[in-house]
Computed example of a mutant assay.
Amino acid sequence: MAEHYSSFTEGGRLWLWQRITAAFLVVVLAFHFFLLHFVYHADEVTFGLSAARMQTWTYYSLMVLFLITATFHGVNGVYNALINQGLTGTKRQVVKWTLVVASGILLVQGIRTANAWAGIGVF
């Protein structure tokens, strides 16, 4: 019988968060697909209309939460896939911190972009 192996630690929360974020992403992606492919058609989607949607707190909050969730889900999945392939030692630490820094940059720039579209000035 094949041996089961997972990089997630037994009793750890990352496994659970990977599943929770997956479920959230399925729902938000369905909403996104419905809104931008059935409610509005491709020729109706404009920068101004997108900016107007971002100016409502519910849509803005959903998109920022979507960014955070997708970033966590993607980075956690890639990192654990690499661990499952045998990544260990110094390479593991380098990959981990590279992904952490890349995630931070992605989140900062994504939130800055969302704020600009929503007309929110931070500085």
Rank of each mutant, 00 (worst) to 15 (best):
70 A>V: 02
65 L>Y: 05
52 A>K: 08
3 E>D: 07
5 Y>N: 12
66 F>N: 00
105 I>D: 00
67 L>T: 01
61 S>P: 01
5 Y>T: 11
89 G>E: 07
105 I>G: 01
90 T>W: 15
83 I>N: 12
69 T>D: 02
38 F>W: 11
121 G>W: 12
43 D>S: 13
118 A>F: 00
91 K>E: 15
80 N>S: 05
15 W>V: 10
49 L>R: 15
114 A>W: 08
88 T>L: 03
106 L>M: 11
5 Y>A: 11
81 A>T: 13
6 S>W: 06
18 Q>V: 09
75 V>D: 08
123 F>Q: 10
106 L>D: 05
98 T>A: 06
80 N>V: 06
30 A>Q: 01
4 H>D: 06
66 F>G: 00
79 Y>M: 13
42 A>E: 15
89 G>T: 04
99 L>R: 01
34 F>R: 07
109 Q>C: 14
38 F>N: 06
64 V>D: 00
42 A>D: 15
15 W>H: 11
90 T>C: 12
32 H>M: 13
41 H>V: 14
18 Q>A: 10
106 L>T: 11
36 L>N: 11
4 H>F: 13
36 L>Y: 15
10 E>L: 12
24 F>R: 03
112 R>D: 04
79 Y>K: 11
109 Q>P: 09
56 T>V: 12
23 A>S: 10
33 F>H: 11
8 F>G: 03
105 I>W: 03
15 W>I: 09
25 L>A: 01
116 A>C: 02
53 R>V: 09
8 F>Y: 11
51 A>G: 04
28 V>K: 00
117 W>C: 13
62 L>H: 03
82 L>G: 04
47 F>V: 15
102 A>L: 14
78 V>D: 07
5 Y>D: 09
99 L>F: 00
60 Y>C: 02
9 T>N: 10
66 F>W: 06
115 N>D: 07
44 E>Y: 04
105 I>M: 02
48 G>H: 06
34 F>T: 06
77 G>D: 00
96 K>H: 13
99 L>P: 00
72 F>K: 04
10 E>Q: 10
74 G>D: 02
119 G>P: 00
122 V>C: 06
56 T>S: 14
72 F>P: 05
49 L>P: 13
70 A>Y: 03
21 T>A: 03
55 Q>F: 02
17 W>H: 04
82 L>W: 08
44 E>M: 10
40 Y>C: 08
77 G>N: 03
54 M>D: 02
122 V>E: 08
65 L>F: 09
44 E>G: 04
24 F>G: 03
24 F>S: 04
29 L>H: 10
60 Y>M: 02
107 L>D: 00
67 L>P: 01
63 M>K: 12
53 R>E: 12
110 G>W: 11
98 T>P: 03
58 T>D: 13
29 L>P: 04
7 S>Q: 03
35 L>Q: 11
89 G>D: 07
52 A>W: 01
110 G>Y: 09
58 T>F: 14
75 V>L: 14
65 L>H: 03
54 M>T: 02
92 R>T: 04
106 L>F: 11
85 Q>T: 10
79 Y>A: 09
2 A>N: 13
50 S>H: 14
9 T>W: 09
60 Y>V: 00
94 V>H: 08
18 Q>G: 08
44 E>K: 11
